[in-house]
Design a protein around this nucleic acid. Structure first.
Length: 555
RNA sequence: GCGCCUGUAGCUCAGUUGGAUAGAGCAACGGACUUCUAAUCCGUAGGUCAGAGGUUCGAAUCCUCUCAGGCGUACCA
């Protein structure tokens, strides 16, 4: 709809220039928006205000001239007027809106998808938690955000892949091995001292117990370093499988699991360091190798290889992003916890070092989640191992509610997650509110079906004649925005826009439902409304689907 | 110290990238089921957009400063 309007305005401007009523010959970026108030029509543009200065005419005059040159023959406007400081307001005829329903019905499950992404290759990397413990609730938000971002980008026409980066190389894996080893000894009746630096969670003991049933006490005979190395691998594998399972139960599946260790094994780390050295971005000082991140706005340069020869995490990251961009990706999206925001400048530096535009790397920061139960904070502390896991949350509130809650806020603002609210089956709970709207419509459609009513695939004539109440028109106009909401959501990397859209649409439907009967005496009105509801259900379903949330037909 | 994020109704948050009179949901109060699902709806009330300057036709939105909170600032991962 906006595209159409933009065209009409452009042609109008050209007309003005052709007959000399306007002089500048400028075609500005035509911004069309939805006015805040209904009296201001369906759409408004501010082009006249932008042109006022160069034209040396008051904005309202410019607007009047432009309106005089608009092609209104198409019969799509009921009114075009100049208002306020120089806005041009467009009132679109109801029948044009109603006609739009046809495209929703026609596109079906594909409605809302678009092609702005133009097939650009985008990779979204998210979660990427160390395989040293189960996923906690914070990872859950990252998982939901990354997964849905990927779905939305895909819906907007990007070619998307999902990747999990396994931090299986650093010394946290040694710590894991050591933790399990100690618990293993302990379970076999040896006295141990369990350091605070080791992983405290009870899952460590579970893994040690596992090892005993599988191998008995034979690893006690090994030298400690060998045993620790064994348990590091053994435990890492178990935990990683657990992570994969938890994510699967949460509805998240990755296209690729990428091992940090493989960067070392495949020589990528050295390769990347060498490349950066050639470009003069890596230098040696005090026995260590440094990356010149200050060239890219960082506070200080960062160590890549320590003086003891060990690489830092940053070295792996350089290699990893070197590898990613080597795979022909147009954009790389990293979803991180907000506590890592300090790493953004240095990674941007790496990207530029690779000769790429820093904007080709997009970092989405996900803020903390505070877990509440009936408004009371649930204490969480990783150190004591008493954190709440993603699995526990999903088991308690269900996948749909968990996903929706994680996506209810902009990702860079903190989130309160109330377990009781998420479970409650009432209007307070936005998940059910949206799903209920879908179920209610399905129930009506089912009831119509039982009465032998057949919703015609295309009922344009009847719909145009019968629809038109304020509640119906508001719904139709909202329905029509799904494609642009998805586009905006994708291009700004903001999944929460979809949840807001769904809540708004569901609300409009519930309002409509309470005021109007759908299946009634008038057969044509009944058919028209059934058609509208069919399109509404389709739109709700498509939105929910992008969020990875089910659209139940009964509740 | 320096850097990043945040500050909008009592609470939790949106705000279409600079537009017109600032928007929801909770919580509070008052109403609506003989109906296709009351897991719903309708109404009332609630604001110095942290504060001060600036940019312009126009600012919650952009620039500067101040205040408050969070985070970061390792030869850690």
């Amino acid at each position: 709809m906006k595209v159409l309007l933009r065209d009409i305005i452009r042609r109008g401007l050209e007309g003005c220039y052709a007959d000399g009523t306007l002089q500048s010959g400028l075609i500005p970026n035509i911004v069309i928006e939805k006015p805040a108030h209904d009296e201001h029509g369906d759409f408004a543009t501010n082009v006249a205000m932008h042109l006022a200065r160069v034209e040396k005419k008051p904005p309202r005059i410019v607007a009047e001239i432009l309106v005089g040159h608009l092609d209104t023959a198409a019969d799509i406007f009921t009114k075009v007027d100049v208002a306020g400081p120089g806005f041009i307001n467009f009132h679109i005829a109801n029948k044009v809106w109603i006609e739009y329903l046809q495209s929703i019905a026609r596109d079906g499950d594909a409605y809302g998808r678009s092609r702005v992404g133009a097939g650009k290759k985008v990779q979204v990397e998210f979660v990427s938690a160390n395989p040293t413990g189960p996923l906690h609730i914070g990872h859950g938000r990252g998982a939901a955000t990354g997964d849905v971002l990927a779905s939305i980008l895909s819906a907007a026409g990007f070619d998307v892949s999902r990747e999990y980066y396994i931090n299986d190389a650093g010394n946290q894996m040694d710590t894991l091995g050591k933790s399990i080893y100690l618990r293993y000894k302990e379970l076999l009746a040896h006295e141990i001292e369990f350091p605070a630096t080791c992983y405290q969670g009870s899952y460590i003991k579970d893994i040690a117990r596992d090892a005993i049933t599988k191998f008995g006490d034979k690893h006690l005979l090994l030298p400690e370093t060998e045993a620790v190395a064994f348990f590091s691998k053994f435990g890492g594998d178990i935990i990683l499988r657990g992570i994969e399972k938890d994510l699967k139960d949460f509805g998240v599946a990755f296209d690729n699991w990428y091992s940090e260790q493989s960067l070392f094994d495949g020589g990528k780390v050295n390769e990347a360091i060498e490349l950066m050295r050639e470009k003069g971005l890596i230098y040696e000082d005090e026995g260590a190798l440094w990356f010149r991140t200050t060239d890219f706005g960082d506070d200080k340069d960062r160590v890549v290889v320590r003086s003891n020869g060990a690489t830092t995490y940053f070295a792996s990251d350089i290699a990893y992003h070197y590898d990613k961009f080597g795979r022909g990706l147009d954009w790389v999206v990293d979803v991180w916890g907000a506590d890592h925001h300090g790493y953004v400048p240095r990674l941007k530096g790496v990207v530029q070092g690779l000769g790429r535009n820093p904007d080709d790397l997009r970092v989405v920061l996900v803020q903390l989640v505070s877990l509440l139960r009936d408004g009371v904070p649930v204490s969480m502390s990783t150190r004591s191992g008493e954190f709440v896991t993603l699995k526990e949350v999903v088991d308690e509130v269900g996948r749909d509610a968990a996903r929706f809650f994680f996506l209810m806020r902009r990702s860079d603002s903190q989130l309160d997650f109330d377990l009781e609210l998420a479970k409650r089956q009432s209007a307070d709970n936005p998940v059910y509110y949206v799903q209920y709207a879908h179920a209610r419509i399905c129930s009506i459609l089912e009831s119509a079906n039982e009465k032998g009513l057949v919703i015609p695939a295309v009922s344009g004539e009847i719909a145009r004649r019968e629809l038109g109440t304020p509640e119906e028109m508001i719904m139709i106009k909202t329905l029509s925005t799904l494609p642009e909401v998805v586009e905006g959501s994708a291009l700004s990397f903001e999944p929460h826009r979809i949840t807001y859209f769904l809540q708004e649409l569901a609300g409009q439907f519930h309002s409509f439902y309470n005021k109007n009967r759908v299946i009634g005496e008038d057969p044509e009105l009944t058919l028209a409304r059934l058609f509208l509801l069919k399109c509404t259900a389709q739109t709700l379903k498509n939105g929910l689907c992008m969020l990875g949330i089910s659209a139940p037909e009964k509740m």
